[in-house]
Design a protein around this nucleic acid. Structure first.
Length: 638
DNA sequence: GAAGGGTGTCATACT
DNA sequence: TTAGTATGACACCCT
């Protein structure tokens, strides 16, 4: 069944992909559904963008709110993986940049608006037929596979029906339980009545008396049975509550998935914010990528060449006459990208030389490690990591070029120029950072400057988030990385596989400070995600406990009502039994032909169904006897 | 200005 | 041993 839905989703995806020229061999894929997909995990330099840490699946927009250990969501992730495999079939070399590739293609080919929208829709459609603006949430630098996991269609189609079924089941279960409860109570009383009927059956000799009929009739109308009739109506609120809870729980899960996916309804502040970032991702990708496409040799180079192009532009802006400006054009980057990241070493050297003009105090400020040492920028105690920065920055410090005239102004002027210039060119790298949830509090002397904003980046299509995006500040780690000439974004540093990270550390000839910074950035980034997950789990746990408390309170109230109803019913039945016993005994005669005294005899129903008359042992007699005994004791004492 | 929520970071334990 | 994860605690920012 799931395979059928999956196949349908894949076919739809194939159609969508065919619109944009991506060939997908769906038959071969589906035939090998249960076989390992074509391995395309590590493709060298691009694999850093390909790798998909599991936390990205749960913490990214399309996976947020989904705990990876949740067994119910295996299908969710399985669908995402499968879609990812399909995508890799269509674009084996740079799968995570598929959206970028598509955007470039559209922008270059200049198809009609309908085609453009179709292509864009294809991008969105990769995650399902949803037309929300956040469908392309993870198409930027985020992990691949936005997948249909959260979408209502595609391979995830079976999921939603399941949820609906669950809701239905919950809706049905409660009425059944209430009905059963009512039924059981009714049946119990009917059995009781049946027993009483059997009890009276032995007196078949006697025709039923009108009084007895009245009693039988009255028995059915005692208050307890009225309550029984009203039991269902009493239960209705509970039923509604339970159903509401059931629905709300499902809705919560759905909301969590939707919110986590990005979601398109801006239901959550964080979700909307991240959505904006990811929208910006694609938009920026489109704008910058299209500009790159004019000079780059291949469309795919728009992805892998980003860091290098960014570095080139960055350094070129800082020192327009530097050697980098002449030797590192985008064509070179394309070739470098084709050769892999290993060719970065000469670039790094030139970058380091170009960074010699940066005031070391700027770097010191950037190095203010964590919120604990933010005061370092304002003349406070040096941050713990300042030494590591000073070693490299001081060596490359060039006072002539930068003009160390006043700390604050210098920081503002120099860093603003640097950041601004290289932001405009580093934007492709930032497309992944825009997904990166950046809430680092900025260094007051540096990051609070308006100069650190990104005024150059225009997003004509981002209506709601454009202004906010312009106000986006860079994280301190990002600033540090750029200050240390590290040609990777924080997002890339954090999310690349550990093997590739090690390879980067080994092959790029980073200095000890750079390696330390890289490791710190990676550690902090990992921990940041872990903290986010931890907090989300905590909130989920609190929410779950609250729901549990509400459920248990409702259950307690229901049980209390049942108890009261049962006691009431039992009392009424007891009274009716007494009345019936009196009636039966009144119709029985002793040896002398007198009616049996109900005060001295009772009816006892045996296990075999026979009803026998038993003499009552009067407690009053025993009481009187006890009184006599007490009197005798008292007399003895006296 | 205080309070509370959100977030990043660190330290630590654990896997 | 190292990388990653989980979580409490702290500081900071924002409303």
């Amino acid at each position: 069944m799931q395979k059928k839905y999956l196949a349908d989703g894949l076919i739809q995806l194939t159609i969508l992909l065919s619109f944009i020229g991506v060939r997908v061999d769906l038959d071969s894929y589906l035939s090998g559904y249960y076989q390992p997909p074509p391995a395309d995990i590590n493709l060298g330099a691009s694999s850093a963008y390909v790798q998909t840490p599991f936390h990205l699946l749960r913490d990214t927009l399309d996976g947020y709110g989904v705990h990876p250990k949740c067994p119910e969501l295996d299908h969710f992730f399985a669908s995402r993986r499968l879609l990812h495999e399909v995508r890799r079939l269509g674009s084996p070399r740079f799968p995570t940049r598929l959206s970028a590739w598509l955007v470039h293609q559209v922008s270059e080919a200049g198809p009609p608006a309908s085609n453009h929208s179709t292509a864009a829709g294809g991008l969105h459609g990769l995650q399902g037929p949803g037309d929300g603006p956040g469908d392309d949430d993870t198409e930027g630098g985020r992990a691949p596979d936005p997948g249909p996991g959260h979408g209502p269609g595609g391979a995830d189609a079976p999921v939603l029906p399941l949820e609906e079924d669950e809701v239905k089941i919950k809706e049905e279960e409660e009425p059944v339980s209430v009905t059963q409860l009512t039924h059981s109570s009714t049946l119990e009383q009917e059995n009781l009545l049946g027993g009483i009927t059997a009890l009276s059956n032995p007196t078949h000799d006697h025709p039923p008396l009108p009084s007895t009929d009245i009693d039988w009739t009255n028995l059915l109308y005692v208050s307890g049975f009225d309550d029984l009739d009203s039991l269902v109506s009493d239960r209705l609120p509970d039923l509604d509550t339970d159903i509401t809870n059931a629905i709300s729980q499902d809705v919560s899960l759905h909301d969590a998935m939707i919110t986590g996916t990005g979601v398109f309804e801006a239901s959550g502040r964080t979700g909307s914010r991240t959505l904006a970032q990811q929208q910006r991702t694609l938009l920026r990708l489109e704008s910058t990528g299209s500009s790159h496409s004019n000079t780059s040799s291949g469309m795919a180079s728009g992805s892998t060449a980003l860091p290098f192009a960014a570095v080139c532009n960055f350094t070129g802006d800082v020192t327009p006459q530097s050697a980098l400006g002449g030797c590192l054009d985008e064509a070179v980057f394309d070739q470098i990208n084709q050769l892999g990241l290993g060719c970065l070493d000469p670039i790094d050297d030139q970058l380091m030389s170009s960074w010699a003009c940066i005031d070391p105090r700027v770097l010191e400020d950037l190095d203010s490690d964590s919120g604990l040492s933010l005061e370092s920028s304002s003349g406070g105690p040096a941050s713990p990591g300042s030494s590591e920065m000073s070693s490299s920055s001081s060596s490359s410090y060039c006072e002539d070029d930068c003009g160390a005239t006043g700390y604050s102004s210098e920081v503002e002027s120099v860093t603003s120029k640097v950041i601004l210039n290289h932001n405009s060119s580093w934007s492709p790298v930032d497309l992944s950072d825009s997904v990166w949830h950046d809430h680092s509090y900025s260094s007051p002397a540096l990051l609070s400057k308006a100069s650190l904003k990104l005024p150059h980046i225009k997003e004509p299509l981002s209506d709601d988030y454009g202004e906010d995006f312009e106000d986006r500040e860079l994280s301190r780690d990002e600033l540090r990385a750029r200050a240390m000439c590290i040609p990777f974004s924080a997002f890339q540093i954090v999310n690349m596989p550990v093997e590739e990270f090690m390879e980067v550390l080994d092959t790029h000839g980073f200095s000890a400070e750079q390696v330390t910074l890289l490791r710190d950035i990676r550690r902090r980034g990992k921990n940041k995600l872990a903290a986010q997950n931890c907090r989300k789990r905590k909130l989920d746990a609190i929410t779950g406990l609250q729901e549990e408390v509400e459920r248990l309170q409702a259950q307690r109230d229901r049980l209390l009502r049942e108890k009261q109803l049962t006691a009431k019913t039992m009392g009424a039945v007891g009274q009716q039994i007494k009345q019936l016993t009196r009636d039966v005994l009144a119709r029985l005669r002793d040896d002398s032909g007198r009616p049996l005294n109900p005060e001295r005899f009772t009816l006892q129903c045996g296990a075999n169904g026979r009803v026998v008359v038993q003499p009552l042992t009067r407690p009053a007699v025993s009481t009187s006897a006890g009184n006599k005994t007490d009197k005798r004791k008292k007399e003895k004492k006296q």
